[in-house]
Simulated scan of single mutants.
Amino acid sequence: MAGALPDGEPVPADGSLPDTATREVGARGFAVYVHVPFCASRCGYCDFNTYTASELGGGASRDEYADTVLKELELAAKVIQPGRVDTVFVGGGTPTLLSATDLGKILEGVDRTWGLAADAEVTTEANPESVDTSSLTALRTAGFTRISLGMQSSAEHVLRVLDRKHTAGRAPRAAEEARKAGFEHVNLDLIYGTPGETADDFARSLRTVVDAGVDHVSAYALIVEDGTRMATRMRRGELPYPSDDVAADRYLAAEEALTAAGFQWYEVSNWAKPGGECRHNLRYWTGADWWGLGPGAHSHVGGVRWWNVKHPSAYANRLNDGVSPGHGRELLSAEDRHVEDVMLRVRLREGIPLDRVDPGGAARALGDGLLEPDAYADGLLVLTLRGRLLADAVIRDLV
């Protein structure tokens, strides 16, 4: 499970925010994140704030979860009125362990509370084995426009190492079913660099996502987090640690295959066909405001960031008592916000104005071939392909 939350400063019992934070809420758009913390089983690499049935303990009910989230929405409505909600993203965990009826109830609550924009992007994550034609149709009817499916790999032996429960062929079939159900946008997630994965394995995974007809692909290098089952296996010598060189080779393979298929990178780990970009994630990456609903969910409004208590039982108990579920918060300084803005925007294809970054670091990155010269001449910092491979190092030099 994810590590302990930071303490921060106390969140007021009513969840109220400083006037300085709420003054311009919604001016740059507004998003809602909903965290669903339930999973049927725990993947070996996962350290997210999620719980299987055996880990929940008493006081937490999946059946009552939608109503609990609606209580947080009631509290949130007294704190801010952003005008409208442009994007909603339901993540987890496995959101589709809740029924389409419950997920629709939460979405209706968001609309009733703040109003969904007419063109709102509404996403849910799903494991491939947790949906079928019927549930996908029900989700689409409930108002979901986008679905993100956790494929990870098309190789059975890689899925076993990751402790994934679906078969290799299930993810592309689920993507096809989602498109037939009327989903406008479908994403498939990949993880590369898993122990035992070969170059041919990853090439087949890339062919699979392209052939599935989706308009968005996310591809992330395997990260081994402390406290996970995979980390334990690696410490025991049962599995080798991931290789940075292999991860770089996989990334280059992804760029080549996806670009050839009509995708374009728009964030270092994300590719989309025209119009398929995830608008919700772009809100995060460009510093917009959002409210995070659910246990462990993070929020940001006007330079104030806060996070809810982690366990579903504690979350439900606070809301049943009429108290904010916020565990702690921090007020970001102007410097904090600038550093975070640089760290996130540098990863975007649209880049960041050069006057927002350290000029010496930018000049060094250009000289090292990590920035696009034409964009640089136009006053923008945009990473080259090699720059994307070294994005973290570039960012450190810019802030």
Rank of each mutant, 00 (worst) to 15 (best):
T101D: 14
L162F: 12
L70H: 09
D374N: 11
H35A: 11
F30I: 11
I352M: 03
R23G: 04
V131D: 04
V85A: 01
A40Y: 10
P325C: 02
L258R: 00
L370T: 10
M234F: 01
V161N: 07
K105T: 05
L107R: 08
R279K: 06
Y251H: 07
L319D: 06
C39A: 03
E9N: 05
V25F: 07
A178G: 14
D86P: 05
R356P: 03
L331N: 06
P325W: 02
N308H: 08
A27G: 15
A120V: 05
G387S: 02
G15M: 11
F263Y: 10
E64I: 11
R345E: 10
T198I: 15
I106Y: 13
T232G: 10
V357L: 05
G296D: 04
T167D: 15
G361M: 01
Y376N: 12
T198R: 14
T133P: 11
A257K: 00
Y220W: 02
G287P: 09
T167K: 15
V309I: 01
V309G: 03
P274F: 01
N317A: 14
E335I: 10
L258G: 04
Y376H: 14
D226N: 06
L56K: 03
E55Y: 03
L5Y: 00
V399P: 03
A363F: 12
L252A: 05
D86I: 04
H280G: 00
T68V: 15
A4C: 05
A138I: 14
R349A: 15
T167P: 15
S99Q: 10
D245F: 11
G59W: 06
D355I: 08
S135Q: 12
V186W: 02
D368P: 09
K105M: 00
P18R: 07
A314M: 09
V85G: 01
L159P: 03
W306I: 04
H298W: 10
I147C: 06
L139A: 09
L97M: 10
L188E: 13
F202S: 00
G169A: 12
T113E: 07
W291F: 14
W290I: 09
